[in-house]
Design a protein around this nucleic acid. Sequence first.
RNA 1: CGGGGCGUAGCGCAGCUUGGUAGCGCGCUUGCUUUGGGAGCAAGAUGUCGAGUGUUCAAAUCACUCCGCCCCGACCA
Length: 574
Amino acid sequence: MRYSEMHLPTGREIPSDAEVVSNQLMIRAGMIRKLTSGIYSYLPLGYRVIRKVEQIIREEMNKAGAQEVHLPMVQPAELWQESGRWNYYGKELLRFRDRNNRDYCLGPTHEEVITDLVRNDIKTYRQLPCNLYQIQTKFRDEVRPRFGVMRCREFGMKDAYSFDADEAGAEKSYQKMFTAYNNIFRRCGLQYRPVEADSGSIGGSFSHEFMVMAESGEDAIVFCEQCNYAANLEKAEIARPEKNAHREKDWLPMESIETPAVRTIEEVSSFLNVSSRQIVKTLIFNADGKPCAVLIRGDQEVNEIKVKNYLGAAELTLADDEIIMKATGAPRGFAGAVGIKVQVIADYSIMNLVNMVTGANKEDYHLKNVNIGRDFQVEFFADLRVSEPGDTCPRCIGAIKFVRGIEVGHVFKLGTKYSKAMKASYLDKDGKEKTMIMGCYGIGIGRTVAACIEQNFDQNGIIWPMPLAPYAVIVTPVNINEPDVMKASEDIYAELLACGVEVILDDRDERAGVKFKDADLIGIPLRIVVGPKNLAQGHVELKIRRTGKSSLYATGDVVTEVRKIITSELNEAS
RNA sequence: CGGGGCGUAGCGCAGCUUGGUAGCGCGCUUGCUUUGGGAGCAAGAUGUCGAGUGUUCAAAUCACUCCGCCCCGACCA
């Protein structure tokens, strides 16, 4: 395409409300524009990149045996009531009414619609397995949209849903998608890694997230340097420690100490001059309306997702003052396990502690030399805390590392959560009715593009990996008013077009510097510079965006060289 | 939802404290010069100063209300 005819509004200034690099560059490079909070338009350049990602996804999904469909974005409330999510999903689900006053929502995900579709058309095991996918707009009314298209409210997503007759089949479908996802992200030229994850509100039993490594990522991930264990921080397991032999001879008599207005771990630690590792933090949670005390070592953090999963609670929040008062008989800050009137579970971290410090369940008092078994009982010990540096790998004995990542894909083994609620069943060989087993698999398209930029930029702009580049080459005549220069540029441009290379001819009447800056900003991997001095020798310059290296080629050879580079970079990724 | 910040030309910002003709840089238009890393000179165009109400002879500026956007937190695919 001729640059002079393109709608490609680039900008020099960094937009004041763009926080992360990818957002700044996507706006400056004329890829996106914000319409309103969390809602973006894609301009021609941006949309080309989106389509590149979509194309790679389509190829790999099709190869994995999935078939493309297109489901409605506007969905009737009835389906969501049937699955139980109309009430459960919360404010993220954008609801509205039509002229007949019927309730609808904008689809934040499509489990309900696809399950409805499949249950009506699939009746027998002969029609299974079945994997359907779509690339479609989702709407989630995010509490706080941020980072441009990385976390927005309206966004393009590829979502796939598998239906199987039995567990073994479901496992196979999951593996196929897992492989397809690896192919997709590798082909996109991303540095990524699949990690074990919590399945969240989508539900289900097992899941992996595909994380693109980036400092700006919203997720923390842990991985083992020795084995291949990797998990989202919220999922990262901590091995059960060895239980020490009872050392009851070390137990000191329990004492009650007055600690006026001393509430937090730091305050207790300095007031009593004991290490926070010796103090037990007692957190009262409200689990579906039932109070529960969670004990953990003072210097560590409770992982609420683990607590929630452990208790099997649908909703878990920290208890309010009223519940705390009722459970402990004291205001916030003095809770302890001794004599507490609620269920007590404890993190492994306190399993081997002796002579602990805890709250006394009495205002302005703490207890010293508290011991498990003598002074209170623990119903269960479990892994309930947040993983931290220094922990060892739960699978081997290696040290774990922490990095940040952007979640670009997520695969879930759903089981029968939706098929059961919505009665998606089939007849098996014996004519018995059985529930289908489902999996669901998502990829954020725009987020993948943004994540790619987070990994591929420099001070001058974006550096596209070849597979996602909106154009592979830009031909830059240094001065369009020199007939020879322009003629040579046009010839090279025509030749590239003729062999199907995606190419821009920068035919604008701008100074060379402006053209170079724009080419760098929009990140075109290869640039052919046609200038009068080199041309007089029969040469043009080929510059590689990523390395900044340039070399001279005869005007007749440069196209061959460019095609060679494109082919090799595309093959390298696949 | 809690805390904080911002809203003035397409973009980035000044002006507001102490009320009195709406400004700067970039971009845009025209002309001349220039032409290998965001050119120079000259002449121009572009604003319901987020909205409303109030105070005042007079409001971008002061007060109140509302709206929008961003950040931190809470929350969450």
